[in-house]
Amino acid sequence: MDLNKYASFSLKDFLEDDDFVNSIINTSKEDSLFFAEMLLHYPEKKEDIETAESLIHNYRKQDTFLNEDRQAEVWKRIEAEARPVKQAKVFSLLKLMRVAAAVLVVGLGAFTFWYNQQQNFSTTFGEIKTVVMPDGTTVLLNGNSSLSYQRGFGKNPREVWLKGEGLFKVIHLNKNPANIKPAERFIVHCNDLNIEVLGTTFNVNNRHNKINVGLITGKIKVTANNVKKAAPSLILAPGDYVEYATKKVVLKGKLAHPERLANWSKRQFVFANEKLKNILKTLEDTYGYQIKYTNAAAMDMEIEGEINVTGVKELLETISASLHVSIYQNENQIIIN
């Protein structure tokens, strides 16, 4: 097997890869050494590999068949396909799923486990990734962010969980606002804040125990899960901006240019009358830079007017020229003098 081909594999990719599935069913010493080497190169794949292996074994142990004779017959055929014979077609997990689905009659079993398993997506510092949901909704994840949802997404309310920052473009399913079906609801969970929408575009930033929600188009409802008492919901219209912290809304305003909430997706930095510490905090959160100040007073220096630049280098040059400070960059460390 080619080690390089697994560099960008997700859980779904492992489950659909003939070589991988066959190696799990017919594990050899060479396979064990290969996977050990893979984990050395791609330690972040460990969870996906272990989950895929568990799923494959669960299917092979499935005991909810019509009868024992039928079960033995099916698995005998599956195992025959899985054996590496000359010119034989390699075993496919998807084929196994089709066979299993045809003979399963009762129980949650392994298929339910697979169907309801959580889907996870994440980005590294400085990375931007597009996630397309099963209903066609797209989520653009900013650097150092994560998104998850259940594999059975869409059968029940469409629910996702976000950490970090994401730009949502939600597909509208409801035709009758007076009768919203469960599967037509779309809910974003951020810690103890829920954001419910029908079809809209909005930006969510969930970092440092603060959640910022800005609406670009459409309408959303923001509700806090206060353990002491039910918190009132807020209905946001385009341009509304909410900051939520310590179980309460601490800021609600109107954005003059709500479309600028999406500027980060183009790797643009846009700030207006902002303090230096808040500007550079963005570089820490999404790009992984370490910021150091030789003079703590510099943190509260404010740039008057608007900054609209593309790229970290241009941002630092603009800050230096505007505030008359010296900025030194050493790999991922930025020092402000």
Score class of each variant (00 low, 15 high):
N4I: 05
Y6D: 00
A7D: 07
F9H: 02
K12I: 07
K12Y: 11
D18S: 15
D18T: 13
V21N: 01
I25A: 01
K29Q: 10
L33G: 07
L33K: 03
M38D: 09
K46P: 05
E47M: 06
A52N: 02
R60N: 02
D69H: 12
R70Q: 14
E73S: 15
V74N: 03
R77Y: 11
E79C: 02
A80N: 13
E81I: 08
R83C: 06
V85H: 04
M97C: 09
V99W: 04
A100M: 11
A102S: 11
A102T: 06
V103R: 01
V105E: 13
V106S: 15
V106Y: 14
G109D: 06
T124G: 12
I128N: 11
K129V: 08
M133R: 00
P134Q: 01
L140K: 13
N144V: 11
N144I: 12
L147E: 00
G152V: 11
G154T: 06
N156C: 10
E165A: 05
L167V: 05
N174D: 12
P177C: 02
P177W: 01
N179S: 12
K181P: 07
H189F: 13
D192Q: 11
V204N: 01
N206D: 13
R207K: 15
R207H: 10
K210C: 07
K210S: 12
K210A: 09
I211K: 02
N212Q: 12
I220T: 00
K221H: 14
A231G: 02
A231D: 02
D240S: 10
V242Q: 05
K252D: 09
A256M: 15
E259I: 02
L261I: 05
L261T: 00
S265I: 09
S265T: 15
A272D: 15
A272P: 10
A272Q: 14
K281T: 03
L283T: 01
Y287D: 10
Y289F: 10
I303A: 04
E304D: 15
I307V: 05
V312M: 06
E314S: 10
E317M: 07
I319C: 06
S320Y: 03
S320W: 00
S322L: 04
H324Q: 15
V325E: 03
I327Y: 02
I327N: 04
Y328S: 11
Y328P: 04
I335T: 05
I336L: 06
